[in-house]
Simulated scan of single mutants.
Amino acid sequence: MSSSPAPKRRLDVRHQSTERAAQARGGRRAARRRTSSAFRPSMATIGALALVAAGLGSAIISDRTDSGTLSGDYQALSADASSGGFDVSRDFDRELLEEQTKAQADQLLAAQQELQVATQAKADELKANQWVLPVTGYHITGRYGTTNSLWGKGHSGLDFAGPSGSTIVAIASGTVIAVKYSGNCGNMTQFQLDAEDLVIMYCHQSRQVVKVGQHVVAGEVVGYTGSTGRSTGPHLHVEVKPGGGHSADPEPYFHDHNVYP
């Protein structure tokens, strides 16, 4: 009895089955390779295609764009470079920086000069409008409009009585228009004020130290108190003449400039 043929057939069947499985696996791998070899665009490929398309579009548009538009676009791109969007040469940046820095410095200097002029003008205005008391150590012995046997119809000014030889100063800035001896006024000095159409008159001085045409400022020494002319004692008589005409009450003018005799 022979038993060998049956095991051989089982081995042949098993071998054939293994070969078919291997062939099936090989077919699947080949199919995957064929699929992998198909065109799959990467991100880089997509970007390159976009740039090519953009270039073609620019070439087409450039045929329809004038040089002025292109120049404007270039300036816009150059300006945008400051935000980091575009690359601009270092030489261009340096030239622009120097130009703008100089322009800025010139503008700053002009502003400073304008401010200085304005400040000086304001200082001159304030200085011209500043009033001060003409004397110190005084007491008022006569006011505007009062009457007595000496003044007749009414007193024409404001009297500051004090020791003879006391310093007299200009009450405000102005120009000296008269320095002389004038009858009842004795030694008299007149000033045309800078800031207002007013003439200030000082009377009864013992001595004057200014001359006609001289410019004086508030607080500057112009003379010394005395009792020259028609006077009963050393004092300074002050008159205010609007427009250089008739005398007016001095006190409201003093008060308008925050000076209160």
Rank of each mutant, 00 (worst) to 15 (best):
V216S: 05
T167Y: 12
T146C: 01
D124N: 15
G243I: 14
A54E: 13
V216I: 10
S231F: 03
L11C: 05
V13C: 11
C203G: 06
D194C: 04
H215I: 00
G145T: 12
L115K: 12
G152W: 05
N258R: 07
T232K: 10
P234V: 03
N187D: 01
L96K: 10
D256H: 07
P234E: 06
P252Q: 01
T18A: 13
G183V: 00
I177A: 00
R28G: 04
R28T: 04
R28I: 03
S62R: 02
E99D: 11
S58F: 14
V52I: 06
D249F: 06
P134R: 13
T18G: 09
F86A: 11
A31K: 10
S156L: 12
A161Y: 05
Q104T: 08
S37Y: 06
G55N: 07
T141R: 09
E196N: 10
A24T: 12
H255L: 10
T101G: 07
A31G: 04
R29M: 02
F254E: 00
A50S: 14
G72E: 07
D124V: 13
Y138E: 03
M201Q: 14
R29Y: 01
A103N: 11
L97C: 03
Y181R: 14
L115A: 14
P234C: 08
R230C: 01
Y253I: 05
V259H: 05
T225R: 15
F191H: 06
S166I: 00
L51Y: 05
G142D: 02
W151L: 11
T119E: 10
R40K: 15
L70N: 06
R90T: 10
F39N: 13
S37G: 05
Y74V: 15
F160T: 06
A6N: 11
R90S: 15
G84V: 08
F254G: 01
T35Q: 13
S149A: 11
S156N: 12
G26E: 06
A103Y: 09
S89E: 04
S227R: 15
F191T: 01
T167F: 07
F160I: 13
V259A: 05
V169Y: 08
D249W: 10
S17D: 15
A38T: 05
L109F: 09
Y224H: 11
P5G: 02
A6D: 14
P250W: 11
G47K: 10
V135M: 04
G57N: 11
D12H: 04
R32K: 09
